[in-house]
Design a protein around this nucleic acid. Structure first.
Lengths: 221, 221
DNA sequence: CTGTCATTCAATTATTCTATTGAATGACGA
DNA sequence: TCGTCATTCAATAGAATAATTGAATGACAG
């Protein structure tokens, strides 16, 4: 198909970008890169995929201008190229949530069972934190926590929930968050805490959305 | 690939939606559907494509929840399912415009040559129209104009620019708009008017964006 | 210069997507 | 009921994409 007119040429470019979003693994990669820059190997480890596979998907994302690469010694660190990557993903996600019955089914079948209370919004959380009413836990792995987290949050990776809760005040509400709106770890954390008798809720979405909303982020531990 | 966890199942759904955006023809179909509902045959005629091909692409879009179908006698009218379809396209377009060198090249090679002045923003246009300083022309075909246009606009399809301009006031500035930000017809109209000695500019984007901004739309002719 | 390690490339196979063709469906009017 | 017309389905061939494997690159340490 030869390029007959410039509009078609432009739409071919736009299609390259949209197509790059059109693979579940690449969407998951974007969720991880939204936490901060990652090397190919680190991403591959997080996703449990062969390095070469991740490398190829990263290059598809780079050709589409979704991620950018920066060489640092023998590592190449990839990160999101543009803040609007997250808004593009959010637009697609919103469309899917509103229009696809299958999404509704998945959400109802799995998530609702674990999160029958409505999630805490960012505004609510800020009020609750200011008044000192809740304990905020970040259930992501320590390396992601170290690269940035909500101020005042405590890092409690999913595997340590039980240990941690033994020492926590039993009558204080816990709010958990993780990588994004559909990150399963915060759902699991809330379910675990509730089964241990705690009052727990989920933040409506994750750190990248918090950052994108212009709210402050705390570094290091 | 079996569904191991609900997050992957969700990402597969999101990928279906994103993938549906990932074809130049489907993006062009979305641009047309943004003007108003269309039958399969009408869309096929506008795009110069076989009906069966358009029908199949429409069903891909429908499976992705991007368009919805409504039967009316023997016709099936398709339209955009959700206002956020346009914002998803806009996010992808913005990303491509900012990140892909190829887009820059196409725009510079073709559009800049025909539009060396900055386009008129919607706000500017409203001021200019209120003060009666410009003539606004809608260069889309009459059927699209009839389904809704910017109040005060005159319908001057591309082929009639020359005839129309003969009767137009020669010292009055003309603003042209069409289907969207990269619709070539408004670029062509501005180029034609300038070559005829008129002062002409383009509106920054088209009718769907005007409507999406909550501004009034006039119906019929 | 050589070995090591992160990343990329190249080649293969399996899968999915695209365009095209002609036949099937479903609604309308005679 | 029958023919017509808009749309969809089904089947095909050709093209693009995905995952896997092993080899090649490029940077660092000794």
């Amino acid at each position: 198909m030869s390029i007959r007119n410039p509009k078609q040429a432009l739409y071919e470019q736009f299609a390259i970008v949209a197509k790059a979003f059109g693979h579940p693994l690449r969407l998951e990669m974007i969720e991880h890169l939204a936490q901060g820059a990652r090397s190919v190997e680190a991403l591959a480890a997080k996703l449990g995929q062969p390095v070469a596979n991740i490398s190829q998907h990263l290059q598809a994302l780079r050709r589409a201008g979704i991620v950018s690469a920066e060489r640092d010694g023998k590592f190449v660190h990839y990160s999101l190229a543009d803040a609007s990557v997250l808004s593009a993903v959010a637009a697609v996600r919103g469309l899917a949530e509103r229009q696809l019955a299958e999404v509704d089914r998945i959400v109802r079948g799995y998530f609702d069972a674990r999160d029958d209370m409505r999630p805490v919004t960012r505004d609510e959380l800020q009020t609750l934190m200011r008044d000192g009413l809740v304990t905020l836990i970040d259930v992501r792995p320590p390396d992601e926590f170290a690269l940035g987290h909500v101020p005042g949050a405590i890092n409690v990776p999913l595997g340590e929930i039980k240990t941690w809760s033994a020492d926590a005040a039993p009558d204080r509400e816990v709010v958990a968050y993780c990588r994004g709106p559909w990150c399963v770890m915060s759902f699991e954390a809330v379910a675990a805490l509730r089964s241990l008798g705690y009052s727990a809720r989920r933040l409506e979405d994750g750190l990248p959305e918090w950052k994108a909303a212009g709210l402050p982020v705390e570094m290091a531990a």
